[in-house]
Amino acid sequence: MKTIVLLFLASLVAVCLSSGIQDSPGVFVEREEADTLVRPKRAATELTLTQLESLMEVCEVDVACESMMDTAGIIAAYTAHYGPIPF
């Protein structure tokens, strides 16, 4: 059994080396390419009224979150007290 696994791994290495796979470019990519790979953060204007109301209901339970909601807004208050918005 070990011989079969070793033979398979050796053939896999041989195929990879013979296929001419180039080295990866590294960890740095151009900004345009990165923009297509990484999903942009959601803006506050993309939330519907129903979603904003559900955030307000969660935030109203906590007094500190509710007072921050009155001064800084619901998005900032929810994010500060409960983390990123789940939707």
Rank of each mutant, 00 (worst) to 15 (best):
D23W: 00
V63N: 12
L37S: 05
L47C: 07
G26D: 00
V63R: 11
T50Q: 11
D35I: 07
V27T: 09
L47T: 02
C65Y: 07
L49P: 08
R31V: 11
C59F: 02
V38N: 04
C65Q: 03
T50I: 09
Q22M: 06
K41N: 13
G26K: 00
E46G: 04
V38C: 05
L49E: 15
P25Y: 00
R39H: 10
M56Q: 15
E53D: 15
E60W: 11
L37N: 05
V29D: 04
M56A: 15
V27G: 12
E30N: 10
S54T: 14
T48Y: 13
P40M: 03
I21F: 12
Q51P: 02
D62V: 05
S54K: 15
L37M: 12
A43H: 13
A64Y: 13
L52C: 06
V29A: 08
E60S: 14
I21C: 05
A44L: 06
P40N: 07
A44G: 13
Q51T: 04
E32T: 13
R42D: 01
E30P: 00
E33G: 08
I21L: 09
V29P: 00
G20Y: 01
T45G: 07
K41E: 14
E53S: 14
E60G: 04
R31Q: 12
E30I: 00
S54L: 12
G20C: 03
Q22L: 08
T36E: 14
P40F: 05
V38R: 11
E53I: 10
R31T: 07
R39E: 14
S54D: 13
R31C: 01
E53W: 04
T50N: 11
V63F: 05
P25R: 03
E32F: 04
R39S: 13
M56T: 13
G20I: 01
C65G: 10
V27H: 02
C65L: 06
F28A: 09
E30C: 03
D35P: 02
A64W: 02
L37P: 01
F28G: 00
K41A: 11
R31I: 07
A43G: 05
L55G: 02
G26F: 00
D23G: 03
E30W: 03
A34M: 06
R42F: 06
T50E: 14
S24K: 07
R31N: 09
S24I: 02
V29K: 11
E53G: 10
S54H: 03
S24L: 09
V63Q: 11
E30M: 00
A43W: 02
L52H: 04
T48W: 08
V61F: 10
Q51R: 01
T36Q: 13
E32W: 08
R39P: 04
C59E: 03
L52Y: 09
A43F: 08
L55D: 08
C65T: 06
E60Q: 14
C65M: 11
E53P: 00
L47W: 11
S24A: 11
R39K: 15
V58N: 09
L47Q: 01
E32L: 12
D62C: 08
K41I: 12
L52R: 15
